[in-house]
Design a protein around this nucleic acid. Structure first.
Length: 645
RNA sequence: GCUGCUAUAGCUCAGCGGUAGAGCACCUCCUUGGUAAGGAGGAGGUCCUGGGUUCAAGUCCCAGUAGCAGCUCCA
């Protein structure tokens, strides 16, 4: 007896394949559209036989999950083609991933872009051959012998691992004369994959470990039809257009120079946005009991020895040679100073500058100083990974009993800040890792406090067991932008180690000394990364309150310049960021330029406006407002330009 | 840091062994034009840097630097 998703039940003769059952008992149309099935929830091939009462769900090519399977099919086909075209190449793994798939190959000579074209063509040709995927099971010993015979050393290694985990048999999938092992399921045949497009080659370490051999990874994607593929490629183009690395220089926000890799130059427009963000955050934290401080950028390494950075983080620190140090010493010994990579240790020093009372807690220090981290050259990229940046960084010193309430306060600030940008956020809760300090009782308490805060906030969160810092559990925030992409912005971390290392204390109500707990938190995270997110989120068209230039005055002819200048000056006098277009272009060209510069308002001035002492505003989207008196526009413009927090 | 790719005018790119090109931007002049490009003229380049091959090198080879796609890393 087979139960279908709609609850209906149908009789199936024992031993019939799912495909035959569907064709006979449900309909040939569904059988034709079917890609794989779920038998009692377990994904299986359509060739799987039904041998007991079960729930059956047919997954058709309309379903996203089918596409995932098809992409895995595509990875198999591509691997088979690569081994034909390039004998001696070993296969390793090839999963389907978001939006596509990849396959890692072991080969002396890397693949060139020309190779990729050849492989792509041959892959699509193999798809056209419409070879069925055939599933079989073999014993582990047979599997090992088979892959050893084929000289597939990586496969042998994986199979041995699987055997070591207790598996008795291995599932093989064959199409044509090519075989690989894999859990499956696969689609019915190669012909059902649709169309494959290969995108890039890159190196990837075997098993993701940089001590291992570098493999050649080919990335590709597959779609059931050409139209869907083209839509996907078009979407990639659109994302590219929003890329902050392209928009930043084009809109005069920021730029990079070879002489300072990983350190942005903030151009006038970018500084304006940066400052608006920074001012808003400063107002917000000031209203919420934070105390702003500034600390040195350059510190004696004794600070980092105290904090533990010298041991654990030195590779990422920019060390500074003390010119008065003994030249005979090693270079590292001469580097008695370092630029700070984090603010926490210097905040701890301030905490220690006087005796603290429980009455002062929670004590919240806020800093936006520049931080320097010597990130690996290959990991730099735009504003999302830089070597010099600033954070809206805070360290909060409090009693354990205050933690939950304080975390809730932080969530409230995040809600205000992210809400202003229309960014949704969710949380990931990371708990105790294997390597950790403190006893289990401490971790129980700490995790309980954070969990309580998450629950009280009603925040959606996922669990990341074992991913906490060695010194405490943490909450990571993921924000979702206008394209649905997720970005990690900040973490809220509980720290039980720093108070020990820095011997931080407070005098309690009971007149004895106690250890405070430290919370590390930032809301934007780094201003640099946040600017990147916002630039792409808004596609460079910042809302009026953030826009570097909020309005530009455009005169129909320079005969109207006098009133135009009056308008610009009056608005500027109100603190609004208004420009005057001096060019001798026609109005259409000026409008076009304002639009390309993504300025929220173009203020058109001609005869009528001069007569009426007014302006005719045009919104960035193309919407024309009607002629209105300057005072009226100024009032509504000023309201719109006011930061929301 | 690792693998691969890339580097030509401010930007986007073409050129590919024989003394440097286009579009846009920029400058000058003309045009005074009502909602996404008015016209004409002009200026602008140690073709990333350093080596090598060659009679001859943006053009081929090697190295360095930076960027890009990934991998590793990411408090």
């Amino acid at each position: 007896m087979v139960t279908l998703p709609d609850g209906s039940q149908k009789q199936a003769a024992a031993g019939t394949s799912i495909f035959d059952f569907v064709k006979a008992s449900i309909g040939p149309g569904l059988a034709k559209a079917a890609f794989f099935a779920k038998l009692d929830g377990e994904p299986v091939d359509l060739t799987r036989t039904i041998d007991r009462d079960s729930k059956l769900e047919i997954v058709t090519t309309k379903n996203e999950e089918a596409l995932e399977v098809a992409r895995h099919d595509a990875a198999h086909v591509m691997a088979s083609v690569v081994q034909k075209l390039y004998p001696g190449t070993q296969v390793t793994i090839g999963p389907s991933i978001e939006d596509g798939f990849y396959y890692d190959f072991a080969r002396e000579t890397p693949f060139t872009p020309e190779d990729l074209e050849k492989i792509e063509a041959a892959t699509n040709a193999a798809i056209a051959e419409d070879m069925p995927f055939e599933r079989s099971e073999v014993s582990m010993d047979d599997a090992i012998a088979m892959f050893e015979g084929m000289g597939e050393t990586y496969k042998v290694e994986i199979v041995k691992d699987i055997a070591a985990r207790g598996a008795k048999t291995l599932t093989l999938y064959r199409h044509g004369d090519w075989v690989d092992f894999c859990l499956g399921p696969h689609g019915p045949s190669t012909g059902r994959i649709g169309i494959v497009k290969l995108l890039s080659v890159a190196g990837a370490y075997w098993r993701g470990d940089s001590n291992n051999a570098m493999l050649q990874r080919i990335y590709g994607t597959a779609f059931f039809d050409k139209k869907a593929l083209e839509a996907h490629l078009h979407k990639l183009e659109e994302v590219k257009k929003r890329d902050h690395r392209r928009l930043g220089p084009a809109l005069g926000l920021f730029a990079f120079h070879e002489f300072a890799p990983g350190a942005p130059f903030w151009l006038p427009n970018g500084v304006t946005v940066y400052n608006v963000l920074e001012d808003a955050m400063r107002r917000l934290v000031n209203k919420n009991g934070y105390l702003e401080v500034k600390t040195p950028l350059l510190f004696n390494k004794r600070l980092w020895e105290t904090s533990g950075h010298w041991g654990k983080y030195r590779e990422n620190m920019f060390l500074v040679v003390d010119s008065e140090s003994d030249e005979k010493l090693s270079l590292e010994d001469r580097c008695s100073f370092s630029l700070k990579p984090m603010n926490c240790p210097s905040h701890h020093l301030i905490y220690r500058m006087q005796k603290r009372s429980y009455r002062e807690l929670p004590l919240r220090y806020y800093t936006t100083d520049a931080l320097h981290r010597n990130e690996a050259s290959g990991s730099l990229g735009g504003l999302t990974r830089v070597r010099q940046f600033e954070q809206d960084d805070s360290h909060i010193y409090l009693m354990e009993s205050q933690v939950t309430a304080e975390v809730l306060r932080i969530f409230e600030l995040m809600k205000i800040a992210y809400g202003a940008f229309g960014l949704e956020f969710e949380a990931t809760f990371s708990t105790r890792p294997e390597q950790r300090i403190g006893d289990d009782a401490m971790w129980d308490r700490a995790e309980g406090l954070l969990k309580q805060a998450l629950d009280e906030m009603g925040l959606k969160y996922g669990l990341n067991p074992g991913d906490g810092a060695f010194y405490g559990p943490k909450i990571d925030m993921l924000v979702t932008d206008s394209l649905g992409r997720k970005w990690q912005t900040c973490t809220i971390q509980l720290d039980y180690a720093a108070p020990e290392r820095f011997d931080l204390t407070y005098q309690g109500e009971d007149n004895t000394l106690h250890r405070p707990v430290v919370i590390h938190r930032a809301i934007y995270g780094s201003f640099e990364r946040f600017m990147a997110i916002l630039t792409e989120h808004y596609a460079g068209a910042f809302p009026t309150w953030l826009a570097p230039v909020q309005a530009r005055v455009l005169c129909v002819s320079d005969r109207f310049n006098e009133w135009g200048h009056t308008v610009a000056q009056q608005l500027q006098g109100m603190g609004l960021r208004v420009e005057f277009d001096e060019s001798s272009e026609k109005l259409g060209a000026k409008i076009r330029q304002a639009q390309l510069d993504k300025i929220p308002y173009a203020l058109v001035i001609g005869d009528k406006e001069v007569q009426a002492k007014g302006v005719t505003p045009r919104r960035r989207g193309g919407e024309d407002l009607s002629l209105m008196p300057l005072e009226q526009f100024a009032a509504q413009f000023a309201a719109e330009a006011k930061p929301p927090f």
